[in-house]
Design a binder for these strands. Structure first.
Lengths: 233, 233
DNA sequence: TCTTCTTGTATTGTATACAATTAGGTGTTC
DNA sequence: GAACACCTAATTGTATACAATACAAGAAGA
């Protein structure tokens, strides 16, 4: 059960990277909540590898700030503070509009098609009442734009910012605010397809501001469920 | 020789972090050239720890793109391609001017004093004919400004960009171009001290453009120097 | 002489054993 | 009942042993 949920796709040849990816995905999709303890033995058993490999994965994730490792205390899923949350979105507001502009210049028809596929998948996930997956795909949409912009270094930064955004959303998302992303993403794709750089940059900026303001960035207490609880669904 | 040079400062209590820091410093100061093989056993013996700890350090550095790890092939000091070199400096030109502006708003007298100390140390290193250390301190100057700007996330990005810049300079520095940094750094500190945001941003931008254009970033064959070459100079 | 295969050596990948540290509980004392 | 010390169990940190892979040198064959 736990085993199948997490490792189903990678029972064989579970290497450090695949485990990190699996955990990253689970965090992205909110199947593991911020603050959850990630015991080495536990993960080692789940993936059928030794602690050595698990440790490498966790270290990897800690460099992305998805996991928080403290000496002799073990690894937990990171829970970004309010300050960090603001910083992450401010950084995104600095980087992504510029990136969208570059993407508008460079986007090919096949890029556009790929983005539209993403949007469709995202809608499908929403229809299937799987908001976690929809959120993950929404992040992938942004990552894809960074990739199109052909600025690998900045794309790497954006990728980590999006990953952290997922944690921030898990902690601070305001339920009352509707998911207005459908429009935003569609409009963005249109601007990219038209090579309208100005419009793409502006749309991305306002989209991020919307996201930022849809967060309830006040201090609050969040309870972290155990790993078993999180994965039993 | 290599032994004492590298480990002198941290013979006792060599932990994963201290080793990563020592290697990072050595790379920053150009004591280890891009492309140099970093054998696990070799490093383990140098620092008097097991390969377990060394591996963690190398992984850490590979996340900063200072070290390139390939499965079953081991770790080498990274040698950024021309494309990466451009990307790194373009990213710096995007992030650092903005950061300098924030720093100008927030800089305290003690911050200014700290920056001036950095500059003095840098000059001392140049006078002592230690260009490697001068380069490291020059990077520290930029990192310090990012820290003053109080944007931890972006500061982290800048830190990795500066580290990679050091590799890029090692590979592509054009000897003919003079080190014009003295003026630039001094002028920047003055703008920060005066809280002149506009000026700080402009100075940082032109400083980075200067650096970028002082590189010989034309296509050419850059071969990774061998270990012998690296140590014989 | 050149090619190809084999074999040996060096190096990395993984698992396991042991040491060190922390956390939680038990009992004692005030 | 609260505070403290102590002990035990659980977890992480590190070293080492073994397996897998890659690299290089040399032998066999054409």
């Amino acid at each position: 059960m736990t085993r199948t949920t997490l490792s189903s796709a990678m029972q064989n040849a579970a290497t450090s990277d695949t485990i990190a990816q699996a955990l990253s995905l689970a965090i992205h999709e909110h199947r593991i909540a911020p603050g959850t303890k990630l015991g080495e033995d536990e993960l080692a058993e789940i993936y059928g590898v030794s602690r050595t490999v698990v440790r490498a994965s966790l270290q990897s994730l800690s460099h992305l700030k998805l996991v928080d490792i403290r000496r002799n205390k073990g690894a937990k899923v990171a829970s970004p503070s309010l300050t960090e949350a603001h910083e992450v979105f401010e950084a995104r507001e600095l980087l992504e509009p510029r990136t969208a502009r570059s993407a508008a210049k460079l986007a090919t028809p096949s890029d556009i098609a790929s983005l539209e596929r993403h949007i469709n998948e995202e809608h499908a996930a929403l229809d299937a009442a799987d908001p976690g997956r929809a959120l993950y795909l929404s992040g992938l949409f942004h990552t894809e734009i960074a990739r199109i912009a052909d600025q690998g270094t900045i794309a790497g930064f954006i990728e980590t910012l999006i990953a952290r955004s997922s944690l921030i959303i898990a902690l601070y998302w305001r339920r009352e605010s509707a998911l207005c992303e459908k429009h935003a993403h569609h409009a963005l794709v249109r601007a990219l397809a038209d090579h309208d750089e100005e419009q793409a940059e502006a749309l991305m900026r306002s989209h991020l501001v919307d996201l930022h303001s849809a967060l309830d960035l006040r201090e609050r207490n969040v309870r972290a469920p155990s790993l078993k609880e999180a994965l039993s669904q």
